[in-house]
């Protein structure tokens, strides 16, 4: 086929769009399916990267250590706060001056 033939053939060519009102919707649906499969692909590649025993074991150990450290710090903080509160409660239970101050501040608040 020479250039002239191709030119005349292209001139004759008409795009025959289907007369389907749901055509656009189906195109968008197709795009969405391709997008989601690309998400799945990236998830798969991410999981593949971390699922090798050489990487998964140290990663798991680090995560466990980080969680234990954070929980210990949180627990220690909570314990110190409660202990300090109970020490104050004890002191005010044995000291009339602190009892009076507490009652005065309660009266002032009311």
């Amino acid at each position: 086929m020479n250039d002239d033939d191709l030119h005349s053939l292209l001139k004759q060519w008409e795009i025959d769009l289907p007369d389907d009102p749901r055509f656009r919707a189906s195109v968008w649906r197709e795009i969405a399916t391709r997008d989601s499969s690309s998400c799945l692909d990236s998830l798969r590649s991410w999981l593949d990267r971390f699922s090798s025993p050489r990487l998964a074991l140290p990663l798991g150990a680090c995560a466990a250590l980080a969680v234990m450290g954070t929980a210990s710090l949180h627990g220690l903080h909570n314990r110190e706060q409660t202990w300090s509160k109970l020490a104050s409660t004890y002191a005010s239970a044995i000291d009339p001056v602190m009892q009076m101050e507490r009652e005065s501040s309660l009266e002032a608040r009311n």
């Binding site: 466990a64 969680v67 929980a71 627990g75 409660t82 202990w83 109970l86 409660t89």
Partner: peptide
């Protein structure tokens, strides 16, 4: 990991929780 966090936190605060549940928490603290 969530269970590990809860377990460590519970272990760290077991005595304070016990004190707070007592009839006189300040004496339990003592």
């Amino acid at each position: 990991l969530v269970c590990l966090y809860a377990g460590v936190f519970h272990w760290m605060t077991a005595d304070t929780a016990q004190a707070m549940k007592a009839e006189r928490p300040e004496l339990e603290w003592l």
